Amino acid sequence: MVDRKAKHDSEGGSQKAPPSGRHSLREEPSGSPSGSDVSAVDPELVSDLGAEYELRGDVAADELAEAKAEAAEWRDKGMRAQADFENTRKRLEVRHADALLRAGERIVENLLPVLDDLDRAIDHAVADGADLSDGLDAVRRKLLDLIAREGCSAIDPFGAVFDPLKHNAVQMREDTEVADQTVVEVFQKGYEMHGRVLRPAMVVVSTGGPSRE
């Protein structure tokens, strides 16, 4: 009996005990949330952010509109400046051309008394039968050619209708056979240049004749 019990104890004692420190139940990993803890979004914060973005959008739109208006204003100013420049340039060109014409007119005006003297000298020479008429007439033709190149021409209205813009009536002469307001004599020729009268012709005008209608 003793041997069987000892054997039993020996067999029972030979079984190994489970290692210490081990647990039979599985432990949950540390750090894992035990439940859902998500914070809700604040509606007031969302509203404030939306209002801020809307305000920024309005400010940007206003700045864009202001920039466009300023650009349009500068464009208009540039166009007006260009138009003013073109108008000024045209006015200067007209003034320059007019100054050239006036310079030629002054030259011709200074020559007119010379032509008058030549006309009178030729008339006297012809009346006296002198041979100076040919030489004087040649000089006269040269002067006429000179002023003609400058655009000047004589106003010799004998037999024409009196024109107060080109003729200066120094005397009225009654003549029933000539139509009224007819130039019947030219005391002194007039001259015009580029459509402008430099000097009107001094004339005698008829009166008492048939009326002009």
Rank of each mutant, 00 (worst) to 15 (best):
V2Q: 10
R4N: 10
K7N: 07
K7S: 08
D9R: 11
S10M: 09
S10Q: 11
G12Y: 01
G13Y: 04
G13S: 12
K16A: 14
K16G: 09
P18E: 08
G21P: 02
G21C: 03
R22N: 04
H23Y: 01
H23N: 11
S24T: 12
S24A: 10
L25H: 07
E27P: 06
P29H: 05
S32K: 14
S32I: 10
P33K: 09
D37T: 10
S39V: 06
V41Q: 09
P43I: 05
L45N: 07
G50S: 11
L55E: 14
D58W: 02
A60C: 04
L64F: 06
A65W: 00
A65D: 13
E66P: 00
E70S: 07
G78W: 01
A81H: 11
A81C: 06
A83P: 02
F85K: 15
E86T: 12
N87H: 10
T88F: 01
K90C: 02
R91Y: 03
R91H: 07
L92D: 11
V94D: 14
R95M: 15
H96W: 07
A97S: 14
A97F: 06
A99G: 13
L101D: 13
L101Q: 12
R102G: 02
R102S: 12
G104W: 00
E105H: 05
R106Q: 14
I107D: 13
I107P: 00
V108C: 07
P113I: 13
L115E: 13
L118K: 02
R120S: 12
A121K: 01
H124Q: 14
A127T: 12
D128H: 06
D128L: 09
D131V: 07
D131R: 05
S133A: 15
D134M: 05
D134H: 06
V139I: 15
R141E: 11
R141A: 09
L143H: 06
L144S: 04
D145G: 10
E150P: 00
G151V: 06
A154I: 12
I155A: 00
G159R: 11
L165C: 02
N168E: 15
Q171M: 13
Q171N: 14
E174C: 04
D175N: 15
V178N: 05
D180T: 13
Q181D: 15
Q181V: 04
V183K: 01
V183C: 03
V184Y: 03
V186E: 03
F187Q: 15
F187K: 15
K189H: 08
G190C: 05
G190A: 04
Y191T: 10
Y191I: 10
E192P: 00
E192V: 01
E192F: 02
L198Q: 03
P200R: 08
A201F: 01
V204H: 04
S206W: 00
G208A: 09
S211V: 15
R212P: 06
